[in-house]
Simulated assay, not measured.
Amino acid sequence: MPLPDLVRRWQPGWGRCRTLPAATEVPGGLRVVLGLPGRHAEIFALDDQAVPALAERVAEAAEPTWLTVPTTRPGEVHIALENADLEPFPDAERLMTIELDDHPAHPVPNAYWAKTSEFRGVHRIDLTGHDGTVAASGLAAIVGTDAVMHDIRTDPAHRRRGLASAVMSALAVTATQLGATTALLVATTEGEHLYTRLGWEPVATMLTATAPMSALVRT
């Protein structure tokens, strides 16, 4: 499937997980308002050839705005962002996907139990330890036949116990029961290693940049 179509499928679920308003179309991209300090808005490019025009929009924005470019040519796009006087973030992310029928099953370890909840179409899995603390969690928004997974977390004190794999497996089961057939997510470098082991495939590098004065650590 063409990359712009995958971005269009991923973005609404990502926005729903973050309780954001719907994106608006801009030439060559999708603009989302986050309302955060240093990140009032973010534009997701639908075509990496649109970087110069989108970079100009970012530079002229009245509020701090990020530009994220999904691409299969990260080296060239990184240079294009710098040439447009934007400052790329040092760590790239990955847009990844998997067919849910292929997602492996990982049971919840015996020392934990799973709690499932739903709020406004976003499904949450919490793995809780015997002390009552949430050891790992994750979100999935179902948009049509797509499950967009987001914010997969493991408490540092509970890592290396297979909890993230169990969360992903539980989210995949929930999504399948709700009619989803494909899953999408954006992974950090650390998360990419886990998802690759689970059979997820990277389809694009996500490069993010902003005007130098508003560059902040990702949130």
Rank of each mutant, 00 (worst) to 15 (best):
T133S: 15
G144C: 02
L127V: 01
L184D: 00
G129D: 14
V148A: 01
G129P: 09
P156A: 11
A166E: 01
A114W: 13
D146V: 12
T128A: 08
A180D: 11
E192S: 13
I152W: 03
H158Y: 09
T188L: 04
V134D: 04
G138D: 05
G179I: 10
R120G: 12
A147F: 06
L139K: 15
S117W: 02
T116M: 13
D126H: 04
L194R: 03
L184G: 05
A114R: 15
Y112D: 05
R161F: 03
M168Y: 06
H123K: 09
S117M: 10
T189A: 15
T133C: 12
T188I: 06
D151T: 10
T176V: 10
T189P: 03
D126W: 04
T188A: 08
H158T: 07
V167P: 05
V122F: 12
A180P: 07
R161P: 03
D151Y: 09
V148P: 02
L127F: 06
A164C: 12
T145A: 12
T116F: 14
G144I: 03
H130Q: 15
T181L: 09
L127N: 11
V148T: 07
I152T: 04
V186C: 04
A147L: 01
V173W: 05
T145N: 15
L184P: 07
R120D: 15
A136I: 04
R160H: 13
T145S: 14
A135M: 08
D146K: 05
